[in-house]
Write a protein that binds this DNA or RNA. Structure first.
Lengths: 248, 248
DNA sequence: ACAAATTTGTTCGTATGTATG
DNA sequence: ACATACATACGAACAAATTTG
């Protein structure tokens, strides 16, 4: 008996339907039916060509089709994987992690990784309009969607302007709620700068991603209604799980 | 006689000014004076510690200071380099490569790498509102700033809607001008999706960048004043030479 | 695919000078 | 004068990343 839940090896030869189309259709069924979840590893091309009793080229043609349609991701030397749906992260004046995720019918979570008070170094001090060396609070938070880590954010606040924010964030990882309790009921994202780089070992571990895949990095400045900067944040997104979307 | 144009080795010991500060100041002078241009390789820590007759730690302390101030970039295993200014690429409804670069007082250039007519595959066909297999024109263009490649863009157009666009782009790499000649005097960027990945060997070669550094990838849809899509483009930016900026 | 050379990063330990009380 | 804390400086060894052969 053949294993349940895998594509059948029964192909119709010489019936006018190319073998690779049948294979692609069979695998699409498996993926669509959820038998192979997002991110799951597909059998190797060698295994598939044995199972379907065809040449490896035929399997490759089928896989290329699926990759072109965005259903699978093929990585040279590693294998093939069911494509994970890429979450959209729209940036705009009202960018908020939790709201954004919930709007896509996913479950956001936040977990504080580190909270510290430090003297401000040049860059952060300048954007927060503080003098160098003034105390700032650094809060590092891991953002998860449906239990999978997708973003690691470093948030910087003036310790003088927001006394006790470290304790608040330790209790509840929501930046929005912490600022609300400290007299900033609303804030606006003024500017977002986006770059990419390789993750540090620590970032890769927290994001549960390969060290050979890059992270998208955003630097965002949030300001209060008077235009005063209240927060600077640097966020690393696992590229391939998130894409940043700008609607114009 | 000591070589001209390099930081002097004459340090004042025991005069109340820390050696590492003197070293940092000396190197800052060299960089500021333009003796070391952007991107230039700095001497190794070993060379500098010999030149200044100090321990490597002392040189490192000076370099850390300069890196913290954004003057140099230090890369493990490679060396230290004079920081290059990162170009801003603002995205919005009126995003145009050449205008953007010129506004930063830099000289933009474009060079066509490839122009081809192909049958549309699923993704492009859908965003251009064409049927799969309809002819589309693919134009690959390298964008340069001050002679350095910074972006490699793949632009897709409907061959039926824009007859002769391949020839026009071959003559003049400006997408804006080509579309103007074909009856679209103005267009608007509707949406931009941003991700990151490792470059292909070809992309790395064209962008003159290491294969171990990621590229920022944007997918942009440009529409005419009636809202009809006229172009879809995928652009790879050399991360570290360009950052995408979203003003809200 | 592997090894060697180069370069920066980290962690010990030690010693000295300076400001503070 | 003394103790303490802190910044500075040197030395050695090893780890990690990159480049080259």
């Amino acid at each position: 008996m053949k294993p349940a839940g895998t594509a059948s090896a029964a192909l119709a030869r010489g019936q006018g339907i190319a073998l690779w189309r049948q294979i692609a259709a069979a695998m699409e069924t498996d993926i669509g039916a959820g038998k192979l979840g997002p991110g799951a590893r597909l059998p190797t091309e060698a295994e598939l060509s044995a199972r379907f009793a065809v040449n490896r080229h035929t399997v490759r043609r089928a896989m290329e089709e699926l990759e072109g349609r965005g259903l699978v991701r093929i990585e040279q030397g590693r294998g093939s994987f069911v494509a994970e749906d890429v979450l959209d992260y729209p940036v705009g004046p009202r960018t908020r992690f939790s709201e954004t995720i919930r709007r896509q019918n996913r479950e956001p979570q936040g977990r504080m990784v580190r909270i510290e008070e430090l003297p401000a170094e040049a860059g952060v001090a300048e954007t927060l309009k503080l003098r160098r060396g003034r105390p700032v609070v650094l809060a590092e938070r891991l953002g998860l969607v449906d239990g999978r880590p997708v973003v690691l954010g470093s948030h910087w606040f003036s310790a003088a302007r927001f006394p006790g924010i470290a304790a608040l964030l330790a209790e509840d990882p929501s930046v929005t709620r912490a600022l609300a309790l400290l007299g900033v009921p609303d804030y606006r994202r003024q500017v977002t700068r986006i770059t990419a780089r390789m993750p540090t070992p620590e970032e890769a571990a927290l994001l549960e991603q390969s060290r050979t895949r890059p992270v998208l990095v955003t630097e965002a400045v949030n300001v209060d209604p008077e235009g005063q900067p209240v927060e600077v944040s640097f966020a690393c997104y696992a590229a391939g799980r998130m894409q940043i979307v700008v609607e114009s």
